[in-house]
């Protein structure tokens, strides 16, 4: 996980997208709950653009 955080920080620096950080932190908190409450994650989309 630590290497992931380091790499993601490097990515935000390279892309100059620090403004995404608060959104990502909030997402990680609430999204974590969402993930923990689900059994499996399945891409629901008609075209896998996300």
């Amino acid at each position: 996980m630590l290497s992931f955080i380091i790499e993601f920080w490097a990515f935000l620096r390279a892309r100059k997208k620090f403004w995404l950080l608060p959104i990502i932190v909030m997402m990680a908190l609430f999204g974590g709950l969402l993930v923990l409450s689900q059994g499996s994650a399945v891409a629901p989309f008609i075209y896998t653009i996300f």
Binding site: F4, A28, L34, P44
Partner: peptide, 15 residues
């Protein structure tokens, strides 16, 4: 759509 995409990203695709 966001609600459906988020779990798969946080669980798999981001990693």
């Amino acid at each position: 759509s966001f609600q459906m995409a988020l779990p798969i990203w946080l669980k798999e695709k981001l990693f």
